[in-house]
Amino acid sequence: MTSRELPVQVLRPRTGFARLGLRELWTYRELLGFMTWRIILVRYKQTLLGVAWAGLQPLLLMVVLSLFFGSFAKKAGVPGPIFFFAGLVPWTFFANSITQSSNSLVGNANLISKVYFPRLAAPISAVLATLVDFVIAFAILVGMMGWYGIAPRWAALPVIPALALLTFVTALGVGLWLSALNVAYRDVQYVVPFLVQLGLFASGVAFAPQTISEPWRTLLGINPMTGVIEGFRWALLGTHARIGPMLGVSIGVSVLLLVSGIVYFRQMERTFADVV
């Protein structure tokens, strides 16, 4: 028959610690691309404003925050709208990512019970698809900075992609936990909107962390998104000089979330098709 080497698959009950399976994920990268592409294609179908929603969501929140929390922005010495928007761009990316990815397995239940693919592809593609919205919102942010005549901290510009990556890692870490939990416990669907609302205030979108008093400030710092948001403001708007320690905590917490998320996900993955 065929002379080429056939791949051999041994299927037996899996026990013990799961491997990360990143290599297999790489061989399925095309599917990952197609799944991301599908989410992007479908997301704004049959909406009037289409992809404009990617910018409108943070813009509307910006208006609300400017109206009610304008005084917090003044303390940072930046015009209110731009102060809030710079925080809302990474925050919206994070919030939409965890909302989408937490539902990525349950929403694809049919796919999971009918075909094999590395299950990690579902939450990853959900976060990747949200990245597109982030880029659009970021472009609007750049436009607004031009409008207000604010020049970024040029030396800090290379940090921006790194900060975006950090947001991605954080969102994926949380998304992995939530999506795997959601398969067995649908409570997650009710927890996520609450987390997102709470997070808007618990991650320093509405105010600069250094303007609040001590026990709360440290507590806020543990939230990895606080460091990311402050990082964005630092690089773009030139606020708050000492960003290092806060970012260090963010990186640590994010990596912890991602690694533990993958391990938990891979562990639970064995029963996804039976439970979902």
Binding site: P13, R38, K114, V115
Partner: peptide
């Protein structure tokens, strides 16, 4: 490979494609 066996083993030699239903992943939009 959609689900794991509880006991025993199966060895599959070659690239396997499964058609458990037609149109898996079709999106109406």
């Amino acid at each position: 490979r959609i689900t794991d066996p509880s006991t025993g083993e199966a060895i599959v030699r070659g690239r396997a494609g499964s058609l458990l239903e037609v149109g898996t992943g079709f999106h109406p939009e």
